[in-house]
Nucleic acid binder design. Structure first.
Lengths: 315, 315
DNA sequence: GTAGCGTGTGTAACCGGTTACATCATGGCG
DNA sequence: CGCCATGATGTAACCGGTTACACACGCTAC
């Protein structure tokens, strides 16, 4: 019935009495508008699709949270899809949601952004998180800048041999952080050593062990993310190497527990939730920063705050 | 066109040649079926709604991951909605998704499950995570059993005054863990002290400080989740109290970093992803365990493995 | 009295598919 | 040769809303 539709959408002129009557009946029969049917005729679903490669860990959890918060503020639903290993799966998902979403937020650190864009249907608006591509709006994080800051900080503390535990080979963020590390090392004139990691705690643990065997042994270790820093910390501890006394350690991301580690982890703060929030805002046509700055958070693991709360002297 | 529909759904008898022709044209014009329209006529969206109170932290991240994995296996989409403070918001969301989802997975640790069920539209199938209610399928975790195991373990190690840092007041899991703690303490004949926490690291940190002032001072602390244990660990460290030498510490959840803490955290393993996976399976009519067992993971923070890798003697 | 107008409500087409049913071509068989 | 079973395709109603448009009504102005 047309009138009912007008009542629910508060559109067009309707007599006050009619509104009441409709509402009463609707309440009595527990009527709730059928969102699916509505979206068909209005061609607007008020749903946006979120496509992520993996749902692991605090990073993605925070991204999703940022998106969700912004979505609910603007009255949007979220269609979430994770765990896409390759391009084919990605395309399948992106196509499957036609008619289900008004737009897409895509994050695919492991895939080439340009290739990715071809997969996106031309009609569907989309924003890329942490990846750039022509013609598509995107939000990126200043990974390289953050990494450079770390090297600068470590160099200022007197470190001349700095090891970098990398992220997964074809990961975008990891690659940018590595580039920042290299650029920083070059600028500061310090010795840069790289060792492979894959963003997991375990890989950090193993990398730490490997680093201790190097000659000359690095005096500072910079991990491409906090998870690996946690693993490295554990590795150093097992080997009897004290952080920061014997080895400076820095992470990347500033996940919530970083401050509760022993010693509290110096790391680079990344506004993860902002990334998600901005993605949604951009998608629905609101203004949002397209580039998010990172900032160095100095705690004790880098050795900069030797004086304060010196726990290594505690025992 | 009816034929096209039949081709895409592989239904009814169609000549091989026609199939090819349709597919060719579809490919050429980049045609992709409109999922929204389809769902309207089939009355099946192949989407299930996930309603969570909050998207914070590794716990929910894991739940979502479990659901997502199972969903993609069965060809379902996920409509995610988080951050519901109160019942009204919850109802609003649950109603808004009519016609968008085939079923609902609801997790609401802070709300009374019975009340919750009234909000659910009668026609929509739903499963409750970590909450029980008549007539609705649900999956629960053996929180109480896990907590009892912890107390038993601590008692066996000789602890007679055990403190328990609780979770948020009206949280279901927190409450069950507390009950398990009490029951365990009673069974073991040990002194049980409770102190309030709210599942955050910060609250664990503060609770630790408070515990140190108690007389008699507890010799073991059991936290209702790992996050608080991390905070407590940090608090004890700042106060110069060694774990496990001066104080035994146990958490709950077994989040990934628990093993990388210093000392590695003894905790209760909760099959979080299984919770999500089972929820989806139950919802779509598959068999799944309705009760998930927890298991004690003994690491060093409880003092049970004094001999091995004893880092407190390191410095 | 009627043309003209604004307000409130009903009618029907449409969104993009699915599907029961009608139609049509084909060929086997009596 | 005609009939009917069978297979392939077209037709139209339907899913549950939205909305352009038609229409009915009460009012003022001429």
């Amino acid at each position: 019935m047309a009138t009912v539709s007008r009542v629910f959408n508060q559109k067009g002129p309707i007599r006050e009495e009619t509104v009441r009557k409709v509402m009463d009946v609707a309440g009595a029969m527990q009527y709730v508008p059928h969102a699916g049917a509505r979206s068909l005729s209005t061609r607007s679903t008020r749903t946006i699709g979120v496509v992520l490669p993996d749902l692991h860990g605090e990073f993605f959890s925070e991204v999703i949270r940022g998106i969700d918060l912004a979505a609910r503020e603007h009255g949007y639903h979220l269609l979430l899809s994770g765990s896409h290993a390759d391009r084919d799966e990605m395309r399948a998902v992106v196509q499957a949601v036609r008619g289900l979403v008004d737009g897409l937020i895509v994050m695919s650190p492991d895939l080439d952004p340009a290739a990715l864009c071809c997969e996106l249907p031309p009609g569907v608006p989309a924003v890329l998180l942490n990846a750039k591509a022509d013609g598509r709006p995107s939000i990126t994080i200043d990974n390289a800048g953050g990494a450079r800051d770390v090297v600068k900080h470590l160099a200022a503390l007197g470190h001349e041999h700095i090891a970098f535990i990398t992220g997964p080979a074809r990961n975008n963020d990891a690659e940018q952080r590595r580039r920042g590390f290299r650029a920083g090392a070059k600028a500061q004139g310090v010795d840069a050593i790289e060792i492979a990691g894959d963003f997991t705690e375990q890989s950090g643990y193993e990398a730490a062990k490997a680093i201790l065997k190097m000659k000359p042994r690095p005096t500072a270790v910079f991990c491409a993310n906090d998870s690996m820093a946690i693993g490295a910390l554990s590795g150093f501890r097992d080997a009897g190497v004290r952080v920061p006394d014997d080895m400076a350690l820095v992470g990347f991301d500033d996940i919530p527990i970083a401050r509760f580690l022993d010693p509290p982890l110096t790391t680079v703060k990344v506004p993860i939730a902002e990334l998600g929030r901005g993605g949604l805002q951009l998608l629905i046509g609101e203004k949002a920063p397209q580039r998010l700055e990172t900032s160095l958070v100095v705690r004790r693991s880098c050795g900069a705050e030797r004086s304060k709360n010196q726990r290594s002297k505690r025992t």
